[in-house]
């Protein structure tokens, strides 16, 4: 009997991740629409916020592509998954880096950011080189002959840069608002707790979108509008 082979065969959990990624995209569109006054005000932190939102859109789109193509049998899917993963991790590092710069601006250190952004960007720069070189080395991740995504022996290296930025972010957030810090810690702990259950369902894009939403709410607690040019 002829076997019925589907070109795309997505598991239930991957369907879940795709659904949450779509939710993240929707949430990001809402954020982008309702933060148009940032673009009117156009301070450094506003530009950084806008960049963060765009990076998260890219993360969501490439995560969607990755999860859709991971179990597919298209001839190009192996290369597409590799590129999706690469773009995903590059954006992941960039998000962490720009988020720290954004927080520094929010705590009144815009001049410091303008002067020293290259120094602050060294961990992200190193990560970017390693991630791009992974296309040829496969040390971080690769896609095997049966089209399976496999983590390489250096995979945890992608978290090191983000971890450095996370620590820097914590110091900045406490200066801005203790409540904001508390909520972000709850988000981080809750996300990690979910990740440790071993269930393969997690949307980085949605978590980053939540971070951006919280940041926007925190900013709008202040009398923000006075500085906005109509």
């Amino acid at each position: 009997m002829a076997e019925n082979i589907k070109l795309i065969n997505i598991s239930n959990l991957d369907q879940g991740t795709i659904m949450i990624d779509f939710a993240a995209l929707f949430l990001l569109i809402v954020i982008l629409i309702h933060t148009n006054m940032y673009r009117k005000r156009s301070l450094l932190q506003d530009k950084l916020f806008f960049s963060l939102a765009i990076i998260d859109v890219v993360i969501a789109v490439f995560d969607l592509g990755d999860y859709t193509l991971r179990t597919s049998y298209f001839p190009f899917s192996k290369m597409a998954v590799m590129i999706s993963e690469m773009v995903f991790w590059i954006c992941f590092e960039l998000f962490a880096f720009l988020f720290v710069l954004y927080l520094m601006c929010m705590s009144g250190k815009s001049i410091n950011v303008k002067k020293n952004w290259v120094i602050y960007g060294i961990p992200a720069g190193v990560e970017l080189i390693v991630i791009i070189s992974n296309l040829f080395t496969g040390f971080l991740f690769y896609v095997d002959e049966s089209n399976e995504y496999v983590e390489g022996f250096l995979f945890n290296f992608v978290y090191i840069g983000a971890f450095c930025y996370l620590i820097a972010a914590c110091f900045q957030i406490i200066k801005i608002s203790k409540t904001y810090f508390f909520v972000l810690v709850v988000l981080l702990v809750a996300s990690m707790a979910w990740k440790f259950t071993g269930i393969d369902l997690f949307s980085t894009a949605f978590n980053f979108a939540l971070v951006l939403a919280y940041s926007h709410i925190n900013t709008m607690n202040d009398e923000f509008y006075k500085a906005v040019k109509e």
């Binding site: 988000l187 809750a190 979910w194 949605f206």
Partner: peptide, 17 residues
Amino acid sequence: YSDFTAILLLFGLITIS
């Protein structure tokens, strides 16, 4: 998971605002 993210989202909203 979807319910969990919904709770996180609104928890953040009512706590920060």
